[in-house]
Simulated assay, not measured.
Amino acid sequence: MPPRPPATRATTNAASSERGLIVNVREAAVRAQEAGRTAARLGRPPTDCPHTGRSDAEVLLRAAWVRGYVAAEQQLAP
């Protein structure tokens, strides 16, 4: 196996930037899930989801919102 080339500042920054993006998406997903739970507790319809699903990030956020909504609805059900 050939030796691995040393990391350059560009590759290090790219990896750091990618990790930051992943953390931001996770944080946004947690916030979206909490918003979905809150909407269900307030009795709002599931069509009130603010995420359109027009981009890859929006699709993930919409799924997180719906998961939160469904989880809260199941807890509220008798």
Rank of each mutant, 00 (worst) to 15 (best):
T47K: 08
R54W: 09
P45F: 06
R67S: 07
G20A: 15
L60C: 06
A77N: 09
L21D: 13
V70P: 01
V59A: 11
D56Q: 12
Q75W: 02
Q33G: 13
A77M: 12
A35V: 02
T11P: 05
T12N: 10
T52M: 14
T38R: 09
E18Q: 15
A64D: 02
G68Q: 02
E27Y: 08
S17G: 12
A40L: 00
S16P: 01
A15K: 11
V70W: 00
R67G: 02
V30G: 05
T52R: 15
R31S: 13
E18L: 14
A39F: 00
A7C: 08
T8K: 05
T12V: 14
D56T: 13
P2S: 13
E27R: 12
R19P: 01
M1P: 10
E73L: 15
A72L: 05
N13Q: 14
L76M: 12
G53N: 01
R41H: 07
L60A: 08
E34D: 14
P6A: 12
Q75I: 02
A57M: 12
M1W: 09
P46L: 15
G68I: 06
R26F: 01
A40P: 02
T12E: 12
R4F: 09
D56N: 13
R31G: 09
A14L: 06
A29R: 10
R41M: 05
P2L: 12
I22E: 15
R4T: 14
P78E: 14
P2E: 11
Y69M: 05
R54S: 15
Q75M: 07
R62W: 04
